Simulated scan of single mutants.
Amino acid sequence: MGSGQQDDPPSSRSWQDAEDDAIAWMIALREEPEDLPLRRRFQQWHDADPTHRAAWAELRHVDGRTRCDRACLRVP
């Protein structure tokens, strides 16, 4: 980090916010995996900002599970 690479978060505060949001999304999606409006809102959040996508990817990596990944990122 801090090398100026494109995937570096723009600021620590926005990165922390994105991490916090990603954790909240993962919990919500695991609690209600069949909630289509929730999944659509998640997809909108995920696609809205590269920092969101990076935070989600980092959380998936740390979590080490794929159960939510496959179900959550497919929105009919």
Rank of each mutant, 00 (worst) to 15 (best):
M1P: 01
S3L: 12
S3C: 05
G4W: 09
G4D: 11
Q5E: 13
Q6Y: 04
Q6D: 07
D8W: 00
D8Y: 04
D8M: 03
D8V: 06
P9L: 05
P9G: 11
P10V: 13
P10N: 06
S11L: 02
S11G: 01
S11V: 02
S11P: 01
R13E: 13
S14N: 06
W15K: 08
W15Q: 10
Q16H: 10
Q16K: 10
Q16L: 09
Q16A: 15
D17H: 09
D17Q: 15
A18F: 03
A18N: 00
A18D: 04
E19R: 15
E19D: 08
E19K: 13
D20M: 03
D20C: 01
D21N: 12
D21M: 14
D21S: 13
D21I: 00
D21Q: 12
A22E: 08
A22P: 10
A22L: 09
I23A: 11
I23N: 09
I23E: 12
A24E: 11
A24L: 06
W25G: 04
W25I: 04
W25D: 02
M26A: 13
M26S: 13
M26V: 06
I27A: 13
I27N: 06
A28G: 00
A28F: 05
A28W: 00
L29H: 06
L29S: 11
L29C: 05
L29E: 04
R30W: 03
E31I: 05
E32L: 06
E32R: 14
E32Q: 15
P33S: 08
P33N: 02
E34Y: 09
E34M: 11
E34A: 15
E34C: 05
E34I: 05
D35W: 06
D35Y: 01
D35C: 09
D35T: 00
P37Y: 06
P37D: 08
P37I: 09
L38E: 03
L38D: 04
R40I: 14
R40T: 15
R41M: 09
R41H: 03
R41G: 00
R41D: 12
F42I: 06
F42K: 05
Q43E: 07
Q43L: 15
Q43T: 03
Q44R: 11
Q44A: 11
Q44Y: 01
W45N: 10
W45S: 07
W45R: 10
W45Q: 10
W45L: 05
H46C: 01
H46E: 08
H46G: 00
D47F: 03
A48L: 03
D49P: 02
D49M: 01
P50N: 11
P50W: 10
T51C: 10
H52I: 01
H52A: 02
H52E: 01
R53F: 07
R53A: 15
R53E: 12
A54F: 03
A54C: 03
A54P: 00
A55W: 14
A55Y: 11
W56Q: 07
W56E: 04
A57D: 11
A57L: 13
E58G: 14
L59C: 05
R60W: 06
H61W: 09
H61P: 00
V62P: 00
G64Q: 07
R65L: 12
R65F: 07
R65Y: 07
R65A: 11
T66E: 10
T66V: 08
R67V: 14
C68T: 13
C68F: 10
D69V: 13
R70W: 07
R70T: 07
A71N: 12
R74P: 01
R74D: 14
R74N: 14
V75F: 10
V75R: 04
V75S: 12
V75I: 15
P76C: 01
